[in-house]
Nucleic acid binder design. Structure first.
Lengths: 342, 342
DNA sequence: CTGTTAGCGCCTTCAC
DNA sequence: GTGAAGGCGCTAACAG
């Protein structure tokens, strides 16, 4: 009887295997851990017993006994449906997975409150570490987790009020480059479209945009700045407003791909040739029929870097190293042929 | 000293709290579980002690003691970077999350071997259940997990060789509708583009396409069928081949959005007006400048339905119900104005 | 080479 | 109202 399910739901234990093989539980452990020297004969018997019972060691009990963590890494993001975050998740998982760690997802739906509950839950589950894209400014719960000995790595946004490893994108540099490209084409009336100021990346990208304009001697015009849209529809509306101004911008810098796509829709619908520069690459960007430059980077790299930082704390010697910061560069991609301003 | 980290990494235990409050561990448990009647005074002292130590109950130990599962749901997909799967993940998580279950992700990268290892690992972690999009035809490892008492729910593809709840999309019906739309426009030379026959959905959609053609009295032409492309580049190449035939198809039915996008690129590059019908909606589909009909459905619904089926097995009375099947309908979306064949 | 003892952190059972 | 045992499944540390 290969897999006699004696009582459904009652999974066999180490003891069951031992008893069936006529040895002690300890011996079974040894065989399973390929530990010390066990006689070939015994090993055979034990393995047979394991197979017959369909025994699978209980990792939970094991990790409890060993005093280690649960072999889980918590991943906390605002919206996993966003490919940006799912790639990030994959990046984390691809790095920690080979080390026997599984990734637990936590979706906060932009709510700091959810984030706090999630982190508390993850800490309770004794995750070995947490990778988080903080949803808001209040990060006390993260500080607390870190203080309780759970390594925290922030991705995309820096930790606030406590030390932690973090991985950022070169938001400022990317925004500078994007803006410079528009300036180089002769544009002076350049609009800005991006998420609200509560989003760290948006702040940095806006700063890069402003500083670049200032450095080029272009007067800032706050009418051209729309910090707010988080989805395509809102971005399209906001872009439409800018384009409808008496003296509309001749170019738009869009600080993420939601805004770029929204802007594209608005420009396209209005039948204009407003130049576009954006942050984040996206599929079909090359087929839009408008020249477009984007600042691109792989979000899975954000994840894999975060995973590496975490592993260093867990396995490497970086257990008590001072907090580290990794900044990923962006690279410019030009779609279509840029048109100099007439 | 609010959170004196006595020894970093050594998290306080129930006993520590008890000792500090001058009570027994049992009493602390009671307070935490809001169990029996504990004197208000004791409760106060315990809670204070909890707060001061920053104590967080160890869920791992708890679930071990209670003999329950780990409060985890395993999610096994081939590629989380694909928005299809990340939405599915979110759907699962949104349903099981409110029941205190967390979702653990497992990415198989299309490898059945990885899938087997992953499932084994998840079972070892005593997940309460598994939602899986099976990567291949060999599902013995899933059967085994199910046999060991871990409820398995298949999404997008049915279980093979063992009974299990599953959620499918109406692949056949959607393909029929898509093909009928092309026939209605007067097309008779209709090509098919889709993933290899190892993918269940592809088989069903191809079947729907073939049966619909046959029903309309259109002779099948196997030169027009390309079952293989899994990414945009391969799809574009395959579409290019079809378009380059001596007697090219006047319309293409693409059985997923990778193939639709690839076909669009090929058609667009060739400057043709080949009609397109696809499966799966995708962003910017409306901006492509070609008429296109797609069979759309929400993959998060696949996930949430799967989550519900799983919950029924875990919490509901469906513990030992016969396996159930849920089929989600598709709905047609028309982008642009369809052009009847001249 | 193999077995016994003890206990990870928690909670059910039974006493007081 | 509260506490003392005992054990969930597993494995270090020590026997033998």
């Amino acid at each position: 009887m290969p897999d006699a399910a004696n009582s459904p739901g009652a999974r066999p234990t180490l003891r069951d295997v031992a008893q069936r093989a006529g040895v002690s539980a300890m011996t079974v452990t040894r065989v399973l851990r390929e530990d010390s020297r066990v006689s070939a004969a015994t090993r055979e018997r034990v393995l047979a017993s394991v197979a017959e019972l369909g025994y699978r060691p209980n990792t939970v009990a094991r990790s409890l006994r060993l005093g280690r963590g649960s072999g889980l890494v918590g991943l906390v993001v605002t919206n996993l449906a966003n490919p940006f975050y799912s790639r990030l998740a994959l990046g984390v998982d691809s790095v920690v997975g080979p080390h026997g760690l599984k990734t637990v997802i936590g979706n906060t739906r932009q709510s700091v409150e959810h984030e706090r509950d999630l982190v508390a839950d993850l800490v309770g589950r004794r995750v070995d570490g947490i990778v988080v894209v903080p949803a808001g400014g209040d990060q006390r719960h993260l500080a607390q987790a870190a203080a309780q000995g759970v390594p925290v790595v922030c991705a995309s946004r820096p930790p606030v009020g406590f030390p932690a490893d973090h991985v950022l994108v070169d938001d400022h540099g990317g925004a500078r480059d994007a803006t410079e490209r528009l300036l180089a084409l002769g544009h002076r009336r350049i609009g800005f479209l991006g998420p609200p100021a509560s989003v760290h990346t948006s702040v940095e990208r806006l700063r890069g945009y402003r500083e670049t304009l200032a450095a080029a001697g272009v007067a800032a015009d706050e009418r051209y700045v729309r910090q707010g849209p988080v989805d395509v529809a809102a971005a399209e509306a906001a872009a439409g407003e800018l384009l409808a101004l008496a003296e509309p911008p001749t170019a738009l810098f869009c600080s993420n791909n939601r805004n770029t796509i929204g802007a594209f829709r608005a420009v396209s619908r209005a039948g204009l040739t407003t130049a576009l520069a954006g942050f984040d690459d996206f599929e079909l960007a090359d087929m839009l029929g408008l020249p477009l430059s984007v600042q691109s980077y792989d979000s899975d790299e954000l994840g894999s870097e975060a995973g590496r930082l975490l592993l260093d704390r867990l396995r490497g010697g970086a257990r008590d190293a001072p907090p580290r910061r990794v900044v990923l560069p962006t690279r410019a991609i030009q779609y279509g042929t840029p048109r100099p301003l007439a």
